[in-house]
Write a protein that binds this DNA or RNA. Structure first.
Length: 305
DNA sequence: AATTGGTCCAACCGCCTCTTC
DNA sequence: AGAAGAGGCGGTTGGACCAAT
């Protein structure tokens, strides 16, 4: 079904003399959000066109679905993409390409839209800075052998720093025990799509919120460019051998040669960051601790109670 | 203080696939 | 089997926001 048919269909499903002119578009109002949340709270989601109609929303079913999945859903995780998530996105994109929804499934609480936006605004930007196509082998190798090892380093450093800041907390550490993500001989990137059992929606719902109480969550992507530019041995038009050599010389190359990441530990650490003040992350703090958008969601939740 | 350029992200568009009848 | 309804996905856009000038 093409978009024109789609529009015709969407308007056609709104019975009782409603036509395209009655369909609302653009930003959602607080009132609309409350209606949608209330309706789904009472009746569940799915069958979006009839949902929109029955709820009295002058929106297309698609619009309702998108609003719910990308914004109103209680387990949606807001805030900055963490280092671990960045690493995972890079890895999964190298495997699956622009399969955003598939990638999003591995990042509980993150939406395909969010990941897509991240990729476009930050990753593609740096491909542009490096003057190469984001799909080129050159850029992919740069990601694989320079950027990703750097991310791993920073994740390790953040984990260590967190432990140092508060020794009473039980942070995980990067261990070679779980083959969640590993480089095989510095040339073949091996990873399990299902990252670890800890990356479940249950866990994410308790650790979500995305509030960045710790600046280490936010990775400056300019590092990629710096890293690339400072790497004097990196020949232009290099092949696999050169890339592998680069990996060996990369500060974190050793990790990829023989190490793995313990994402369970990462997740635990990440959850601690989310908590920020050391308190227990509850569903309430999930709603209230993620910045402006979460304040708004908290307000909406209050309307339901 | 005003302007400009860059970034971020919610929302929409168009196409495709799946489901139902 | 085929048509229409419905949902899902990736691409794109517009505007709000912010930092630099």
């Amino acid at each position: 079904m093409d978009g024109n048919k789609d529009r015709m269909f969407d308007s056609g499903t709104l019975h009782g003399g409603e036509d395209d002119a009655d369909l609302r578009r653009g930003p959602w109002t607080v009132e609309e959000d409350i209606i949608l949340i209330n309706y789904i709270h009472n009746h569940g989601d799915g069958r979006w066109n009839s949902l929109a109609r029955c709820a009295g929303l002058k929106r297309t079913g698609k619009s309702c679905r998108l609003r719910w999945l990308n914004y109103l859903r209680p387990d949606v995780r807001r805030g900055n993409i963490t280092l671990e998530e960045q690493l995972l996105i890079l890895e999964l994109h190298s495997r699956w390409g622009n399969r955003w929804s598939k990638i999003a499934q591995q990042l509980p609480g993150r939406t395909d839209n969010e990941i897509k936006n991240y990729w476009r605004t930050r990753v593609q930007k740096h491909a542009k800075q490096l003057k190469c196509d984001v799909n080129s082998k050159q850029f992919k190798d740069t990601m694989r052998y320079l950027w990703m090892p750097r991310l791993v380093e920073r994740i390790q450093a953040a984990s260590v720093a967190s432990t140092a800041v508060d020794g009473s907390r039980s942070y995980g550490s990067v261990t070679p025990t779980q083959p969640a993500l590993m480089m095989n001989g510095g040339s073949d990137f091996v990873s399990t799509p299902q990252v670890t059992p800890s990356y479940t929606s249950e866990n994410s719902s308790s650790g979500g919120g995305g509030g960045s109480s710790d600046g280490t969550q936010v990775s400056s992507m300019s590092e990629l460019t710096d890293c690339y530019n400072n790497f004097s041995c990196f020949p232009s038009g290099y092949g696999q051998d050169a890339a592998a050599a680069a990996a060996l010389q990369s500060p974190a190359g050793g990790f990829f040669n023989e190490g793995t990441l313990d994402f369970q530990a990462m997740e635990q650490s990440s959850c601690e960051w989310m908590a920020g003040d050391g308190g227990v992350v509850t569903s309430e703090s999930l709603w209230s601790g993620a910045g402006d958008g979460a304040d708004y969601l908290w307000f909406l939740q209050q309307q339901l109670n």
